[in-house]
Design a protein around this nucleic acid. Sequence first.
DNA 1: ATGAAAGCGCTAACAA
DNA 2: TTGTTAGCGCTTTCAT
Lengths: 328, 328
Amino acid sequence: MDKKVTINDIATQAGVSKTTISRYLNGKFDNMSSNTKARIEETIDKLDYRPNRQAQALKTHHSFLIGVSVADISNMYTSRLLKGIGEYFQKTHYQVLIMDADNSVARELSNLEKMMTEQVDGIILQPLVHQPEHYQLLVAENTPVVQVDRYTEPFAWPAVVSDNFQKSVELAKIFKTKSYDAILVLANHINGVSSRMNRYNGLEAGLTGSGITVKLIEIDGSDWQSLLHAEIKQHQHPAIFALNGQVLWSAVRFAKERSLNIPEDVGLIGYDDDQFADMITPAISSVSQNPQEIGRVAAEQLLSSVNGQATPPKNTRIPSEIQMRDSL
Amino acid sequence: MDKKVTINDIATQAGVSKTTISRYLNGKFDNMSSNTKARIEETIDKLDYRPNRQAQALKTHHSFLIGVSVADISNMYTSRLLKGIGEYFQKTHYQVLIMDADNSVARELSNLEKMMTEQVDGIILQPLVHQPEHYQLLVAENTPVVQVDRYTEPFAWPAVVSDNFQKSVELAKIFKTKSYDAILVLANHINGVSSRMNRYNGLEAGLTGSGITVKLIEIDGSDWQSLLHAEIKQHQHPAIFALNGQVLWSAVRFAKERSLNIPEDVGLIGYDDDQFADMITPAISSVSQNPQEIGRVAAEQLLSSVNGQATPPKNTRIPSEIQMRDSL
DNA sequence: ATGAAAGCGCTAACAA
DNA sequence: TTGTTAGCGCTTTCAT
């Protein structure tokens, strides 16, 4: 266990004061002889010195830490979101503290507490809860926050999300064109999850006056399979609209188990997971989001907010794309 | 922007010295009047005080930060690995600093540098490079390290990995039973990636003397599809063994594009991605790893190493399972 | 049972 | 162009 080398070691070795070293570290070369500069550089190199982040943070009240709270780290959407966030901060001096709420509201809150203890300079939040009051503690500490994927209401912080409502309106047109008579919306509980609500509401809005039935089936509770099956039997030309990737695959499995033909017996379209969507037969139509871009933009916005630039008090919508394949 | 509340505020408010507060924070109640204790608790609560991690770290030389370096954050294996790691550290006071190497050796090194700057107490590393000398900087600083998924050689740090070699030996038996005459191993470059090498070597070991041809086809370069196709045509009863999930799906897509029947024209089995494996027709046989458990165990080992307990100087192998379905 | 004081490794005002 | 000094928010030794 060798002693850590500190700014004092460099100062002594280079024969200057630690102020000068500090200046060097912070790029303040305005009034530094190139001689000194060279000697410092050499010494730092030789001793393999790295400034201590905690000491810097303590002094400057700037941790260079960004907290990221995700709903569930083990799904594709999240992975790609994190890719975008990581890519952006990679180019900066900020480090990213990722915490997985594992879909538990209690754990999310505990994670946010921990972030505050770590003195994060800002937070990217994929909120589990719809009410901003729930995140009271962030407000109290006046931490910059950017939301992703979902947002709380009423407005508390900017959010970067997919164009959920609009895309569902578009989808509604497609349903009409293909003369479906019932849309069975399959989802986890949608209440309080803005992205899901917007997908649902957009569909309803796009379908008003069309005479097409819209029915929401939440898969969390009870025997959704039987419910869904009954609904399918009950209509001439029904289609399933799955509100996220996981649910989409549940639907595929469901159809397989019940030997339902897609799209003859029931049409199918759903969100996400499009890398596998064209591997199965029939190829599954899907709405493909761009979580990586969402992450990138959120990171960008957060950083400017951290740097004191006024944050646009608006939601940013990142376009998603409807990929028509064979299942609808 | 309200002032952060510090230990001094609590001390003043509670009418004791900050020494006593510090004792309280660190659970040293041995010699503390219950009166004082109660008053401190109340004050902390009222002011919503949280000790500053950086200040603690500076004093104790203990950042309570764990660095995690992954090869590529945007794949399922990694997601589940991170789930396991996060779950474990959740119960501790440690925070996890996840960094994505994005399969770039340069970026991996830069990430490790950053981790050192953050004074991480330990590192979980999924190494991109096989030579331990590459990770020189970690040795120099004497940081506890546990490797996951892969390991460097010769031995430098303990590793938690799948039972790759053994599983391939088992697989070899299956190939023999099913009288395949050629195994086409499909992979990204395997050189220097211990998991892939072990999967390949185990197969060869299990197949020696069987007369079954083993052919490695790396998909990174050139026109692997043509190569693979030629090999398939050339044998009576060939099978593809895909060394990871991404490659497995490339193989599925390949078969689809060339209208090859699985398993009649060519058998197929591969690693990972088993949640989709049974959704397509035919259902794909696969070797399913347990990355979450790998993460958990690695976290556990790292923590005891951080806490000064002697680390077992050995690799830990987490069992994976061969899932036979219809493609082989 | 509690406190005073030193110091962790840095930065920044002020001085020279 | 460079250095002196105080102090960020804690922990810990040594007193009392």
